[in-house]
Amino acid sequence: MNVVHHNAAGSGFLSPTGVEITFVLVGLVVLGAALVTVTTRQLVHAALWLVVALGGIAVEYLLLTAEFIAWVQVLIYVGSVVVLLLFGLMLTKAPIGRSPDADSENRWVALGVALAAAGTLVWVVADAFRSTWIDVHPANGPGATAVTGSSLFRFWVLPFEALSVLLLAALVGAIVLSRRRPEGRDR
């Protein structure tokens, strides 16, 4: 797909290569879509803008040659989570047009939380990597499928398995909650 050559010495921050310009532009689109998602009064439109935001992030992954993660993003978030979200919205009789009560009156708190979360993430990432350059050469760079797979199962097996146990617990919980109770008991 996209070939990115990084010479650690040659390329400064935001050197104007096509890929980096695209990266920033897509990033702006994602930010805009995310803003619309949380501010629009039309519920289903919010979900659809969420698709744009999540899809944009997948494009960002692609631009970083993290192909596998990008497709996982599309499969899980765009293909499943948003579909589930829309499914739920449709069951709630979401109206076409504005919902006047689609405002929890928590705008400022939400903004504060969002800024705090963003600040923390940016700080953590910047602090962790500092000026380290990661070569994202596509052939067998850190984003390639084989490399992702082997690092996942070689170095991150425990978190991976812990997550699967968590998901299993959620699954069992969902089944227990949705099971019909026997007649005459706890009605």
Binding site: W71, V74, L75, V78, S80, V82, L86
Partner: peptide, 8 residues
Amino acid sequence: AVMGVGVL
């Protein structure tokens, strides 16, 4: 992944 998007 992309095929799943079609249902949207």
